[in-house]
Amino acid sequence: MASDERKGFGERLQKAASAKQAMLDRFKARQSVDDPAAAERRAERKALSDARDARLAERKALKQAEAERAAADQEAQAASQAAQAAQDEVERVEREARLALEQKAARDARYAARKARK
């Protein structure tokens, strides 16, 4: 700071102007948009982005197919359970009907035996 105090105002202005010019030179030294290397890097980034998008779409399709398969399996299992329940119900009704017939036959036999004794 002590050295800056001895310098005049003009020197400080000159120093600021040269710093601004150095920043401007560094900015201009950067590659332009029309640079073939920059275009190549943009093309590489686009190719990577497209490949990433394709992988994401493939993963999404695989997940969708897996979800559809799981839903179909679940529906098939539900249908199988419903068919088994219906079969069980039919068997239960048949057992009850058979039991009712057996009971009626036993009752009729008892009635006939009682009539025969009289």
Rank of each mutant, 00 (worst) to 15 (best):
M1Y: 07
M1I: 14
K7R: 12
E11V: 11
L13D: 04
L13E: 06
Q14S: 14
Q14T: 11
A16S: 12
A16C: 12
A16R: 08
A19D: 07
A19Y: 04
K20W: 08
K20N: 13
M23Q: 14
M23S: 13
F27S: 09
F27T: 05
K28P: 01
A29P: 00
A29C: 00
R30C: 04
S32G: 10
S32R: 07
D34W: 00
D34A: 05
D35T: 01
A37T: 08
A37Y: 05
A39H: 06
A39T: 09
R42M: 14
A43Q: 04
E44L: 02
K46Q: 13
K46D: 14
L48V: 11
S49N: 15
A51D: 14
A51H: 13
D53W: 06
D53L: 10
D53F: 06
A54K: 08
R55N: 15
L56A: 13
E58C: 05
E58N: 11
R59C: 12
A61V: 07
L62N: 11
L62A: 13
K63Y: 06
Q64C: 02
A65I: 07
E68V: 10
R69F: 12
R69T: 15
R69C: 13
A70E: 06
A70Y: 01
A71P: 00
D73L: 07
D73K: 03
Q74K: 10
E75M: 05
E75L: 06
A76F: 02
A78R: 05
S80E: 15
A82V: 03
A82L: 05
A83T: 13
Q84W: 05
A85L: 08
A85Q: 11
D88I: 12
D88W: 08
D88R: 15
E89H: 07
V90F: 13
E91A: 14
V93T: 14
E94L: 14
E94Q: 14
R95G: 09
L99V: 15
A100T: 14
E102T: 09
K104I: 00
A106Q: 04
D108R: 00
R110C: 02
A113I: 00
R114H: 03
R114L: 03
R114M: 03
A116H: 00
R117V: 02
R117N: 03
K118N: 12
